[in-house]
Amino acid sequence: MEVYIVIISFIIFVIMLFIVSTYLISSMIYNNLSNKTINKKVNKLQSIMYNKLSNDKGMNEEDIEQIKKISSTKLGLRAFYLAYKDYINNNGYDFVIKEYINRIISYEKIRKNSIVRDKYKKSYILYLLSEFRIDSEKTRQISLQSLQDDSIYIRNNSLKLIQNIGDVELALQAINIINNTEKYFNEKILLDFLDNFKGDIDILDKKLLDILGNYNIKLKTKIIEHYSNRKNDSLEIRDSMLNYISTSDNKDVIISSTRYFKRVIDNRVANILNKNLKNEHWEVRAISAKVISKYPNKKAIDILKQTIGDNNYFVRYNSAFSLISMEEKDQIMEELLNHHDRFAKDILAYVMFVNNIIDFESYNNYKEKFAVQGG
Rank of each mutant, 00 (worst) to 15 (best):
G58T: 10
N91S: 11
S21R: 13
L170S: 04
L75P: 11
K52F: 05
D330A: 12
Y366G: 02
L209K: 04
E182M: 09
K69G: 05
E335G: 15
I25R: 08
Y107L: 07
E131S: 10
I287S: 00
N176Y: 08
F18L: 14
M326L: 07
D195T: 13
N89M: 08
D249Y: 07
E335C: 12
K44L: 14
I19N: 08
M28R: 15
E169N: 14
K305H: 06
N243F: 01
Q173I: 05
T181H: 03
E334D: 15
E280S: 10
A344M: 02
K278N: 10
D167E: 12
N164Y: 11
L194A: 00
I105P: 00
G166Y: 02
I105D: 05
D56N: 15
V354N: 11
I5A: 12
M1G: 14
Y153N: 10
K109P: 02
I115F: 11
I70G: 01
Y350Q: 09
V14E: 09
N89F: 06
V315E: 01
I347Q: 10
D330V: 12
N355C: 06
R263G: 10
D195W: 06
I104W: 01
K345S: 06
D310E: 03
K183Y: 06
T258I: 02
K188P: 07
V351T: 10
P296T: 02
F353Y: 13
F193N: 04
L191C: 04
N32M: 12
N338Y: 08
Y227M: 00
R230I: 06
Q148N: 15
M333I: 15
E361Q: 12
L304P: 04
D63E: 09
Q163R: 13
E335A: 13
K329C: 06
I67Q: 05
N91V: 07
N267I: 06
